[in-house]
Structures are given as C-alpha cells and as structure tokens.
Design a binder for these strands. Structure first.
Lengths: 174, 174
DNA sequence: TATTGTTATACTCTATAACTATA
DNA sequence: TATAGTTATAGAGTATAACAATA
C-alpha cells in the first residue's frame, strides 16, 4: 500500500462523497463526477500521471529553468559527447526540426556547442560547454529531489515496481 | 514476461549492438546511444509510454477522427449528462478556456449540445446528441481495439498490473 | 539516391490574463 | 467577492513538407 497523501486535493471520490453529508454551505454539494470507462484505459492514467510528474519536475527545476525535454538533451549529450543531431533526435524521439530550435536556445544560454564533425562535413558534433557540465550536475541533483517527491507520493515500493515495469517494456523502443 | 514485439523498431539496445558485428555497410556501424541517468527517471519512461499509447489511440480511432482528449470528454458527458463545463474541466484536468474550444468543435460536428442549466442561468448543461451517443458507442469499440494493441505489446499480466498500480495511485487526484 | 541540418507552417495542448454575466 | 463561460495570447510540443549541402 502506498503512503496516502493527506492534502485536500488528494481526496478520493468516495471520500468526497462522504464529505458531502457533512454540513458545508454549497461547495461540496457537488456529486462526484464519474469517468466511466476511462477507468479501464491505461492511456488515461498514463497521461494524468505524466502531466503530474512533469509539473513537479518543472517546478523543482524552475530555479535553473530547465524543462524535461531540455534535461534529457543535456543528459544524452553529456553521456555521448560528440554525437550528431540526428542520433540525438532518434535516441530521444524528438523531431529533427524541433531539435534545431532546442539546441539554438541551449546554445544561446551557453550550455551546448555545435562543432564541425571530423570526417563528416554535413553533420555537427554536439558537446556540453564547461558551463553546460556544471548546469547538468546541478540539474541532476534537483532531478533526484524531484524523484524523491515521486517516492513520497507513490511509496518507494510502488515507484520501483513501476520503473521496472516501464523499463522492461519501453527501454530502447519507440 | 511480456510478448516480444518482433518489429525492427522494437530491437533492444543490446540487440542492436549485436547486430553491429554482422556485416553491414554503414548504417548499423552506429554504436548504441546510451541515455544514462534517464534510465532512473520514471517521468522519462512515463512520457515515452504515453506518447506511444496516444499515437496508437489516434491511429486506431482515425477513421472516426476522435482524439484522446475528445474521447475523454465524450465519455464523461455520456456518463454525467447535464454536467457543467467547469465540472467537466475539473474532472479531466482540462483548462476551462481550452474546453470552450473543444466543445465548439464537437458541437459543430453535431456530437454535443450546450443547454441552459435549470436554475443556474450562468452555467451550461452538457449533453450528447443522438449522433454523439452513436459516435461514443463506436469510439468505445475502437478504444477497446486500441487497448488490445496494448495488451499485445505489454502482455496481459503487465497491462493489468500497470493499470492497477496507476489506478491506485492516481485515481481521483490531480 | 539517401541523409543532415535547416526553415517554415499548422495544429494540439498548456498557461494566463482579462472580460461579462451572473451568484 | 467568487464563479461560469468566454476571448485572446504566448509558448511548448508534434507533424509535415521542402530545401541545400553532402554522402
């Protein structure tokens, strides 16, 4: 069983229904709205979960202004210095066209570089700048903090179980 | 263990590394690109999974032109005839402003209606038209087909396990 | 001919702010 | 004052098509 989040917004539908009978002016007179067959759709929960997680990630890393997609780009360049834009795009499932814009922004912030690729004049070799390396290091610390929020919400066992499941099923695929 | 997808794009990284040693001109000379610490982030897999699932959903329902968000709106209205736009927005976590546009489109397609809410002149009561009910019925059939694709990819046991986990953790919350 | 990086366009979705008419 | 619906705008992300330079 996961730890229960005690914030108001975490109330279950049945809990809200029960709260209705307690004397309250008008706000909680609303009957709970059921989502019917959506409860059978993995995609529905996956989407809600993903939005929640990304919001927490964005909030937690807001002090350095790094968003999830940017984080993933920095991590993969840091892990594979000198890789090309197409390899990066393929790896992360980002459109080549979109990546151009993202790298423009990261480059303007002094975090990444495009260098001429040795022996392949049509492609670029991507690197983190010194600044980019420092930023990535800081980002990883904050991202770990974000992951701790997840553990808090899901319970450590649930988080691990989910991660293992997802990894098994989605690792290295599109 | 889940069934293995045998399509080329489903190759695991290690499989691709092995394929490298086989004689092939240049394409598979690329070393696999590692994603480093992303492998520890639930949000990373959640996002990849969600994108895959939504794409399959969109493809599977393309013949009726219903997207995931539209589907969820139709389901919830069908389940709660006469509910207001704000209740709908709150339930699905859609911005009130965004919902206005979505309902405009669904209404223009003759699938939903806004009726004056009895006793609350500032809010609308939402209903499916006859046409909308038929569309929803068809959509549910196709959505079940989509869910079968998921079972195929994840394995029935994994899909159930994921669904139960997600439901326990995210049901009725934001 | 196919690939790499690029530009451009369109559409979906999210996030805000502001306005009106109600309550 | 707060809520319901609406309008408008800005930005992220996705999906395409097309082009020049290169392989």
């Amino acid at each position: 069983m996961p730890e229960r989040n005690v914030e108001a917004r975490a109330l279950q539908p049945d809990a809200r229904a029960r709260a209705k009978s307690v004397s309250r002016p008008q706000r909680n007179t609303r009957p709970p709205v059921g989502v019917g067959v959506l409860n059978e759709h993995l995609g529905y929960f996956m989407r809600r979960a993903q939005v929640w997680i990304f919001n927490d990630f964005i909030r937690t890393l807001s002090e350095i202004g790094i968003r999830p997609a940017q984080y993933s780009v920095l991590v993969v360049i840091g892990e594979n210095p000198g890789l090309s834009q197409s390899d990066l795009a393929r790896t992360l499932g980002i459109e080549r066209a979109r990546l151009v814009h993202m790298l423009d922004l990261l480059q303007r912030r002094g975090l990444t570089e495009r260098q001429p690729a040795p022996g392949a004049r049509r492609s670029h070799a991507l690197f983190l700048t010194r600044e980019g390396q420092k930023m990535l290091k800081r980002a990883k610390v904050l991202a770990a903090e974000h992951e701790a929020h997840l553990t808090e919400r899901l319970g450590a066992a649930n988080r691990k179980l989910m991660l293992d499941l997802m990894r098994e099923v989605w690792q290295g695929r599109n």
